[in-house]
């Protein structure tokens, strides 16, 4: 966002973090309002400083806009529509893969996620994508489930595997 263009500073997308920060700080202060000072003091300190910093930031931005040294744009957040689409799909696929873990288990959801990404983002052929994603998901299963015994919800694959090999 500091990419000065013709000496001007773009602003807009960089309000997101201060707004989130101010919102969280407000919530935090409410959540501790009934507590003893020892439980409160550091949170209050951080929140107050944060408000102060955000205040300065807001003031600077407003002054900048009034003086014409700042201009509003949101593009820097996503750069281009193509990139936004790619990132959006990657993040959406990630969210989807996490959402199905409780039903599909680690191995299947990882396979599905990698397969979709490889086909969609890299443009791999379905066959190659299936082989690569399958190998990676299976390696993950061996390493994380069999060896490291992480307690992921079991899916059809894990149950089938454990029924077959008795592990």
């Amino acid at each position: 966002m500091n990419d000065d263009r013709n000496g001007k500073v773009a602003t807009g997308a960089d309000w997101i973090i201060p707004i989130l920060g101010a919102g969280f700080a407000t919530y935090y202060l409410i959540s501790i309002k009934d507590l003893d000072w020892e439980a409160k003091v550091s949170g209050v300190f951080c929140a107050v400083v944060l408000f102060l910093l955000i205040g300065i930031f807001a003031l600077r931005t407003v002054l900048g806009l009034l003086r014409g040294t700042h201009y509003i744009e949101l593009r820097s957040l996503y750069e281009s529509h193509k990139l936004a689409l790619i990132r959006g799909s990657l993040f959406a696929l990630t969210v989807a893969s996490v959402a199905i873990i409780p039903w599909a288990g680690f191995t299947l959801s990882t396979f599905g996620f990698l397969f979709a990404c490889f086909v969609w983002l890299q443009g791999m052929s379905a066959r190659n994508a299936a082989i690569t994603a399958g190998a990676l998901a299976f390696a993950g299963y061996v390493l994380f489930i069999l060896i490291l015994r992480t307690s992921f919800p079991q899916g059809p694959f894990e149950r089938l595997a454990s029924a077959l090999i008795g592990l």
């Binding site: 990657l90 696929l93 990630t94 893969s97 996490v98 873990i101 409780p102 680690f106 990882t110 996620f113 990698l114 990404c117 490889f118 983002l121 890299q122 443009g123 791999m124 690569t132 990676l136 998901a137 993950g140 994380f144 490291l148 992480t150 307690s151 992921f152 919800p153």
Partner: peptide
């Protein structure tokens, strides 16, 4: 496009493993 999904898939395991919470 290959590396990023792999990173996401395998680091998410790390996020889950220490405490086992979805």
């Amino acid at each position: 496009p290959v590396l990023a999904p792999i990173i996401i898939a395998f680091t998410l395991v790390g996020a889950f493993a220490p405490r086992g919470y979805m």
